[in-house]
Write a protein that binds this DNA or RNA. Structure first.
Length: 496
RNA sequence: GCGGGUGUAGCUCAAUGGUAGAGCGGUAGCCUUCCAAGCUACUUACGAGGGUUCGAUUCCCUUCACCCGCUCCA
């Protein structure tokens, strides 16, 4: 009786097990490692290994191509991570990124100080300081859980990483690592406008690192303290907010499908009126079904002119745009699609992971079948793990093998083919172990194509087979005879 | 930050108050004519720091990391 598990518990156990397998594969194959692992690791920080950094690069390249290079109306920007502290004052991050927390010394519960006071009908006291607000509990504050008045003073957890510019560690030299890439775009709006010869509507895009001192990093790389963002600020004429917002939500959903995330696992979450920030007119989050739940990959917000007007106010510089056609001056409104690169990488890894029963040599030629949890594969099959990345996003596009390692003519020809392909695609050469083992290694790396050089390639079966190779498909395991000449075009077609 | 759990090789797991063993993997060699075959050799670990003890991977404390719940989530 005590051993009986509810369906919910069983399902939870299965998803935990799945995440653990994905984490193990990420380490085994060199996708993601713990940061500073030899020193015990560092909470909230992760490194990308040889395959992982190729994957991430492919995500960023795809985004940059689709959002910037292939459009007439978007230009790029690469700003510094540390910027003038006033930027974060203007953006609201210095004040609103702070959560004052109090702990009950008696029952160890933790509360947001403002919420606790509100519940008691009191008002949290605060004083402005150069580095943000300092909070003080009003008289009469007590723990709402146990009633004790033994509460710690409110401590501010500002989510921005702080540092100092120059040698003196002093309040006047405080600077922050950017908690988002977006603000630099607003701060450089006039510079970009004056050189890029763009007219509203147009966008400025940036990819880069951002830092948030999260209280509680969780779910592998999903919530990290150092992460990478891809943000677009698309500046529009006031009043066209709704139509552009709708446009970008559609564009972004399409993009996720283009990198191989299925529509069935992507869900738009439309913010309700009361959930919106006061300046925003609309916001849609793109959610992905991770093994640990449906979670946000990107937020697409219509932010009005809040950011530009804030910077105009704080800097005293005009952020206005002069419209040649209507001869009007105005502060452009903005639609902001803001995506997390690491979250997308994690989504791709989770989505690509499959356990299958693949045919062994006895039943070669059969199609692989999905593995059934907790069961042994049927005779003639054995389990394999395969990462089914979309070819466009796969870290390695093609692997090249000589059928046998101890035949110099095969090795020489294979290396020749490898060098030919390497000039165009991320390629991998392997000759260790038997051919099946090498195929399986590439399955775990998610390499969509394997090319094998055999004796027919050398012309042993006659001239019509000479200079043809086996092209093996990762997903179907099907093999096809293709001439070396046609190979680059075949692969290029699949990975474009 | 609180509570619970976990920490032995790259992975999965074992044993033990007297300094650790296997399978898989990896590397090298032999072999191998298309899906993890075989043989040989090599490789690698008690998360970190203290304490108790003649002696600690094992017991105790602290710390770090990971997982789960709470909390938090621009």
């Amino acid at each position: 009786m005590a051993d009986k598990k509810s369906p919910e518990e069983a399902a939870e156990k299965a998803t935990n097990a799945l995440m653990e397998k994905i984490v193990a594969l990420c380490k085994r194959r060199g996708f993601i490692f713990q940061s500073s692992e030899i020193y015990g690791g560092l909470n909230g920080f992760w490194d990308y290994g040889p395959l992982g950094c190729e994957l991430k690069r492919n995500i960023k390249d795809a985004w940059w191509r689709d959002v910037v290079q292939r459009r007439d109306d978007v230009v790029g920007l690469e700003a510094t991570i540390i910027m003038h502290p006033s930027i974060w004052k203007a953006s609201g991050h210095v004040d609103s990124f702070t959560d004052p927390m109090v702990d009950c010394k008696t029952c160890k519960k933790r509360f947001r100080a403002d919420q606790l006071c509100e519940e008691l009908g009191l008002k949290l006291e605060s004083v402005e300081t150069p580095t943000g607000k300092q909070f003080k509990l009003p008289a009469g504050a007590k723990c709402t859980a146990c009633g004790s008045d033994q509460l710690t003073e409110p401590r501010s957890f500002n989510l921005m990483f702080k540092t100092f510019i120059g040698p003196v560690e002093d309040v006047s030299n405080v600077a922050y690592l950017r908690p988002e890439t977006a603000q630099a775009i607003f701060a450089q709006f006039q510079n970009v406008l004056s050189c890029a010869r763009q007219k509203v509507p147009f966008g400025i895009a940036q990819i880069g690192k951002a830092f948030r001192n999260e209280i509680n990093p969780r779910n592998f790389t999903f919530r990290s303290r150092e992460f990478e963002q891809m943000e677009l600020e698309f500046f529009i004429k006031p009043g066209t907010d709704a139509q552009w917002h709708e446009y970008w939500v559609k564009e972004r959903m399409k993009w996720y499908e283009s990198i191989g995330l299925p529509a069935s696992k992507l869900k738009p979450y439309v913010y309700k009126k009361e959930e919106l920030a006061h300046y925003a007119s609309a916001c849609v989050d793109v959610y992905f079904d991770f093994p640990f739940g449906s979670q946000e990959l990107e937020g697409i917000a219509a932010r009005g002119n809040f950011d530009l007007s804030q910077h105009q106010k704080h800097s005293g510089k005009s952020m206005e745009y002069f419209d040649d056609e209507t001869k009007e001056k105005y502060l452009p409104h903005v639609v902001e699609p803001s995506a997390g690169v690491d979250r997308i990488a994690l989504a791709l890894l989770c989505n690509a992971y499959y356990e299958e029963w693949a045919p062994t040599s006895e039943s070669a030629g059969s199609a692989p079948i999905p593995a059934e949890h907790g069961k042994q594969p049927p005779a003639g099959f054995e389990s394999r793990v395969v990462m089914r990345f979309a070819p466009r996003i796969a870290p390695v596009k093609v692997a090249v093998f000589p059928l046998l390692k101890n035949k110099p003519a095969l090795v020489e020809k294979a290396k020749e083919v490898f060098h030919l392909l390497r000039s165009q695609f991320v390629s991998f050469y392997d000759e260790a172990g038997n051919i099946g083992r090498r195929y399986r290694r590439q399955d775990e790396a998610g390499t969509p194509f394997c090319v094998t050089i055999d004796f027919d390639t050398l012309g042993e079966k006659g001239p019509e087979m000479k200079d043809t190779v086996t092209l093996r498909d990762r997903d179907t395991l099907k093999q096809e005879r293709v001439s070396i000449k046609e190979l680059p075009a075949r692969i290029a077609e699949a990975v474009k």
